[in-house]
Write a protein that binds this DNA or RNA. Structure first.
Length: 259
DNA sequence: ATGCCTCCCCGAGGGAGA
Protein backbone atom coordinates (compact mmCIF):
# COMPACT_ATOMS: atom_id res chain seq x y z
CA UNK A 1 0.00 0.00 0.00
CA UNK A 2 1.45 3.31 -1.14
CA UNK A 3 0.40 6.31 0.92
CA UNK A 4 1.24 9.94 0.15
CA UNK A 5 0.79 13.12 2.14
CA UNK A 6 0.45 16.29 0.11
CA UNK A 7 -0.24 19.90 1.12
CA UNK A 8 -2.03 20.88 -2.08
CA UNK A 9 -2.37 24.64 -1.33
CA UNK A 10 -5.93 24.96 -2.58
CA UNK A 11 -7.76 22.05 -4.19
CA UNK A 12 -9.64 24.28 -6.63
CA UNK A 13 -6.56 26.26 -7.71
CA UNK A 14 -4.59 23.03 -8.00
CA UNK A 15 -7.25 20.73 -9.43
CA UNK A 16 -5.35 19.76 -12.60
CA UNK A 17 -2.12 19.42 -10.63
CA UNK A 18 -3.87 17.03 -8.24
CA UNK A 19 -5.81 14.95 -10.75
CA UNK A 20 -2.86 14.70 -13.15
CA UNK A 21 -0.67 13.50 -10.31
CA UNK A 22 -3.28 10.99 -9.10
CA UNK A 23 -3.54 9.48 -12.59
CA UNK A 24 0.22 9.31 -13.02
CA UNK A 25 1.44 8.35 -9.54
CA UNK A 26 -1.58 6.24 -8.59
CA UNK A 27 -1.28 6.41 -4.80
CA UNK A 28 -3.49 3.99 -2.87
CA UNK A 29 -4.11 6.63 -0.23
CA UNK A 30 -3.61 10.41 -0.23
CA UNK A 31 -3.68 12.60 2.86
CA UNK A 32 -4.38 16.15 1.70
CA UNK A 33 -3.88 19.38 3.60
CA UNK A 34 -4.85 22.99 2.86
CA UNK A 35 -7.73 22.06 0.61
CA UNK A 36 -9.01 25.63 1.27
CA UNK A 37 -12.49 24.42 0.55
CA UNK A 38 -15.70 23.53 2.33
CA UNK A 39 -16.99 19.96 2.21
CA UNK A 40 -19.65 21.10 -0.27
CA UNK A 41 -17.25 22.79 -2.68
CA UNK A 42 -14.67 19.98 -2.67
CA UNK A 43 -14.52 18.32 -6.14
CA UNK A 44 -15.69 15.03 -4.69
CA UNK A 45 -17.41 13.56 -7.74
CA UNK A 46 -14.48 14.27 -10.05
CA UNK A 47 -12.06 12.52 -7.70
CA UNK A 48 -14.44 9.62 -7.10
CA UNK A 49 -14.51 9.20 -10.88
CA UNK A 50 -10.75 8.58 -10.71
CA UNK A 51 -11.41 5.61 -8.43
CA UNK A 52 -11.10 7.14 -4.99
CA UNK A 53 -13.27 7.19 -1.92
CA UNK A 54 -13.24 10.69 -0.43
CA UNK A 55 -13.51 11.96 3.14
CA UNK A 56 -13.22 15.68 3.76
CA UNK A 57 -13.03 17.99 6.74
CA UNK A 58 -13.13 21.43 5.20
CA UNK A 59 -13.81 25.02 6.13
CA UNK A 60 -14.32 28.21 4.21
CA UNK A 61 -11.27 30.03 2.89
CA UNK A 62 -8.35 28.23 4.43
CA UNK A 63 -7.09 25.11 6.22
CA UNK A 64 -9.06 21.92 5.49
CA UNK A 65 -7.92 18.31 5.23
CA UNK A 66 -9.07 15.28 3.26
CA UNK A 67 -8.34 11.60 2.72
CA UNK A 68 -8.56 9.90 -0.68
CA UNK A 69 -8.37 6.12 -0.90
CA UNK A 70 -8.79 3.40 -3.50
CA UNK A 71 -10.08 1.20 -0.66
CA UNK A 72 -13.24 2.19 1.21
CA UNK A 73 -12.75 4.60 4.09
CA UNK A 74 -14.19 3.35 7.37
CA UNK A 75 -14.71 4.88 10.81
CA UNK A 76 -14.10 8.44 9.62
CA UNK A 77 -13.57 10.97 12.39
CA UNK A 78 -13.08 14.72 11.94
CA UNK A 79 -11.42 17.17 14.30
CA UNK A 80 -8.53 16.70 16.72
CA UNK A 81 -9.96 15.81 20.15
CA UNK A 82 -9.32 18.00 23.14
CA UNK A 83 -11.04 21.30 22.30
CA UNK A 84 -14.63 21.25 21.06
CA UNK A 85 -14.50 25.02 20.52
CA UNK A 86 -11.64 24.85 17.99
CA UNK A 87 -13.19 25.89 14.64
CA UNK A 88 -10.12 25.16 12.49
CA UNK A 89 -10.28 22.11 10.23
CA UNK A 90 -6.89 20.48 10.67
CA UNK A 91 -7.46 16.80 11.47
CA UNK A 92 -9.23 13.84 9.88
CA UNK A 93 -8.72 10.14 10.43
CA UNK A 94 -10.08 6.96 8.90
CA UNK A 95 -9.34 3.26 8.52
CA UNK A 96 -8.61 1.32 5.36
CA UNK A 97 -8.45 -2.46 5.25
CA UNK A 98 -6.01 -3.99 2.79
CA UNK A 99 -4.23 -7.17 3.80
CA UNK A 100 -4.67 -5.66 7.27
CA UNK A 101 -6.36 -2.64 8.83
CA UNK A 102 -4.45 0.64 8.79
CA UNK A 103 -5.53 3.69 10.81
CA UNK A 104 -4.72 6.87 8.86
CA UNK A 105 -4.51 10.25 10.56
CA UNK A 106 -4.17 13.33 8.34
CA UNK A 107 -3.07 16.54 10.02
CA UNK A 108 -2.33 20.15 9.23
CA UNK A 109 -0.49 21.51 12.23
CA UNK A 110 -0.78 25.28 12.83
CA UNK A 111 1.97 27.48 11.47
CA UNK A 112 2.27 29.49 14.68
CA UNK A 113 3.88 32.68 13.39
CA UNK A 114 4.46 35.22 14.68
CA UNK A 115 6.10 33.82 17.78
CA UNK A 116 5.63 34.68 20.53
CA UNK A 117 1.95 35.51 20.34
CA UNK A 118 -1.53 33.98 20.33
CA UNK A 119 -0.93 32.06 17.12
CA UNK A 120 2.12 30.43 18.64
CA UNK A 121 0.17 29.64 21.80
CA UNK A 122 -2.45 27.96 19.60
CA UNK A 123 0.24 25.93 17.86
CA UNK A 124 1.69 24.64 21.13
CA UNK A 125 -1.77 23.90 22.53
CA UNK A 126 -2.63 22.00 19.33
CA UNK A 127 0.60 19.99 19.67
CA UNK A 128 -0.42 19.08 23.23
CA UNK A 129 -3.73 17.77 21.92
CA UNK A 130 -1.87 15.93 19.16
CA UNK A 131 0.35 14.28 21.76
CA UNK A 132 -2.70 13.04 23.64
CA UNK A 133 -4.19 11.47 20.50
CA UNK A 134 -0.76 10.09 19.56
CA UNK A 135 -0.46 8.42 22.97
CA UNK A 136 -3.79 6.70 22.38
CA UNK A 137 -2.54 5.36 19.03
CA UNK A 138 0.59 3.97 20.68
CA UNK A 139 -1.45 2.40 23.48
CA UNK A 140 -3.81 0.74 21.00
CA UNK A 141 -0.87 -1.16 19.45
CA UNK A 142 -2.52 -0.99 16.04
CA UNK A 143 -1.05 -0.37 12.60
CA UNK A 144 -1.47 3.40 12.48
CA UNK A 145 0.21 6.50 11.14
CA UNK A 146 -0.06 10.26 11.50
CA UNK A 147 1.04 12.20 8.46
CA UNK A 148 0.75 15.67 7.06
CA UNK A 149 2.10 19.18 7.18
CA UNK A 150 3.55 19.40 10.70
CA UNK A 151 4.94 22.90 10.22
CA UNK A 152 7.96 21.69 12.19
CA UNK A 153 11.58 21.67 11.03
CA UNK A 154 12.83 18.88 13.29
CA UNK A 155 16.61 19.41 12.94
CA UNK A 156 19.05 21.91 11.39
CA UNK A 157 19.75 19.48 8.55
CA UNK A 158 16.07 19.76 7.59
CA UNK A 159 16.60 23.32 6.33
CA UNK A 160 18.92 24.61 3.61
CA UNK A 161 19.55 27.73 5.73
CA UNK A 162 18.72 26.84 9.34
CA UNK A 163 20.06 30.18 10.55
CA UNK A 164 17.21 31.91 8.69
CA UNK A 165 14.63 30.02 10.79
CA UNK A 166 16.05 30.50 14.28
CA UNK A 167 13.24 32.79 15.45
CA UNK A 168 10.53 31.16 13.38
CA UNK A 169 7.65 29.19 14.90
CA UNK A 170 8.61 26.22 12.71
CA UNK A 171 12.05 25.90 14.25
CA UNK A 172 11.96 27.40 17.75
CA UNK A 173 13.40 25.10 20.43
CA UNK A 174 9.97 24.79 22.07
CA UNK A 175 8.42 23.68 18.76
CA UNK A 176 11.11 21.09 18.16
CA UNK A 177 10.82 19.83 21.74
CA UNK A 178 7.06 19.43 21.39
CA UNK A 179 7.60 17.44 18.19
CA UNK A 180 10.21 15.24 19.89
CA UNK A 181 7.87 14.58 22.79
CA UNK A 182 5.38 13.12 20.32
CA UNK A 183 7.95 11.09 18.37
CA UNK A 184 9.41 9.80 21.63
CA UNK A 185 6.11 8.20 22.58
CA UNK A 186 7.34 5.44 20.31
CA UNK A 187 6.82 6.60 16.74
CA UNK A 188 9.17 6.12 13.81
CA UNK A 189 9.71 9.27 11.76
CA UNK A 190 9.61 7.39 8.49
CA UNK A 191 11.84 9.54 6.29
CA UNK A 192 14.65 9.77 8.84
CA UNK A 193 14.49 6.03 9.37
CA UNK A 194 15.60 5.51 5.77
CA UNK A 195 17.58 8.69 4.95
CA UNK A 196 19.80 10.30 7.62
CA UNK A 197 21.52 12.86 5.43
CA UNK A 198 20.92 16.58 4.81
CA UNK A 199 19.48 18.23 1.72
CA UNK A 200 16.01 16.66 1.64
CA UNK A 201 13.10 19.09 1.67
CA UNK A 202 9.34 19.04 1.20
CA UNK A 203 8.59 22.78 0.95
CA UNK A 204 10.08 25.61 -1.08
CA UNK A 205 8.67 29.13 -0.80
CA UNK A 206 7.17 30.67 -3.96
CA UNK A 207 9.23 33.81 -3.32
CA UNK A 208 12.86 34.64 -4.00
CA UNK A 209 13.38 31.70 -6.34
CA UNK A 210 13.55 29.29 -3.41
CA UNK A 211 13.07 26.22 -5.61
CA UNK A 212 15.72 27.25 -8.13
CA UNK A 213 18.19 27.80 -5.29
CA UNK A 214 17.01 24.64 -3.46
CA UNK A 215 16.31 26.80 -0.44
CA UNK A 216 13.89 24.37 1.15
CA UNK A 217 12.73 22.95 4.45
CA UNK A 218 11.44 19.52 5.44
CA UNK A 219 8.16 19.96 7.31
CA UNK A 220 5.88 17.21 5.92
CA UNK A 221 6.30 14.05 7.96
CA UNK A 222 5.06 10.50 8.53
CA UNK A 223 4.98 9.21 12.09
CA UNK A 224 4.41 5.44 12.28
CA UNK A 225 3.38 3.36 15.27
CA UNK A 226 5.75 0.44 15.97
CA UNK A 227 3.27 -1.98 14.39
CA UNK A 228 3.19 0.20 11.28
CA UNK A 229 6.95 0.75 11.19
CA UNK A 230 7.39 -3.04 11.09
CA UNK A 231 5.56 -2.99 7.76
CA UNK A 232 7.41 -0.08 6.14
CA UNK A 233 9.00 -0.88 2.80
CA UNK A 234 10.18 2.61 1.94
CA UNK A 235 9.77 6.35 2.32
CA UNK A 236 10.63 9.05 -0.20
CA UNK A 237 9.95 12.65 -1.17
CA UNK A 238 8.62 13.39 -4.67
CA UNK A 239 10.53 16.64 -5.03
CA UNK A 240 10.34 16.75 -8.84
CA UNK A 241 6.71 17.84 -8.64
CA UNK A 242 7.84 21.25 -7.35
CA UNK A 243 9.38 21.99 -10.76
CA UNK A 244 6.23 21.22 -12.74
CA UNK A 245 3.51 23.53 -14.01
CA UNK A 246 1.47 25.35 -11.34
CA UNK A 247 2.97 23.52 -8.38
CA UNK A 248 1.99 23.62 -4.75
CA UNK A 249 4.72 25.03 -2.53
CA UNK A 250 4.84 21.57 -0.91
CA UNK A 251 5.54 18.24 -2.62
CA UNK A 252 4.19 14.76 -1.82
CA UNK A 253 5.95 12.58 0.72
CA UNK A 254 5.39 8.84 0.33
CA UNK A 255 5.42 5.77 2.52
CA UNK A 256 4.96 2.22 1.28
CA UNK A 257 3.82 -0.35 3.81
CA UNK A 258 3.17 -4.07 3.53
CA UNK A 259 -0.56 -3.89 4.15
C1' DA B 1 14.58 41.79 6.02
C1' DT B 2 10.14 44.73 7.37
C1' DG B 3 7.29 38.30 3.17
C1' DC B 4 9.82 39.98 -2.79
C1' DC B 5 4.41 35.09 -4.27
C1' DT B 6 0.03 32.74 -4.24
C1' DC B 7 -3.96 31.24 -2.23
C1' DC B 8 -8.53 32.49 -0.38
C1' DC B 9 -12.28 35.82 0.47
C1' DC B 10 -14.96 38.23 -3.55
C1' DG B 11 -15.32 41.46 -7.29
C1' DA B 12 -10.98 45.89 -3.90
C1' DG B 13 -7.56 45.02 -1.18
C1' DG B 14 -6.52 42.34 2.94
C1' DG B 15 -5.62 37.96 5.74
C1' DA B 16 -2.92 33.86 5.73
C1' DG B 17 0.72 31.09 4.67
C1' DA B 18 5.99 29.58 6.18
Amino acid sequence: MKIATFNINGVKARFETLTGWLAEASPDVVLLQEIKSTDDSFPRAEIEDLGYSVATHGQKGFNGVAILSKLPLEDISCGLPGDDDDPQARWIEATVVGTRAVRLCCLYLPNGNPAPGPKYDYKLAWMDRLRARAAELIAAEDVALMAGDYNVIPQPEDAARPEAWEKDALFLPETRAAFRRIVNLGFTEAFRAVEPGPGHYSFWDYQRGAWDRNDGIRIDHFLLTPQCADLMRGCWIESALRGREKPSDHVPVWVEIDA
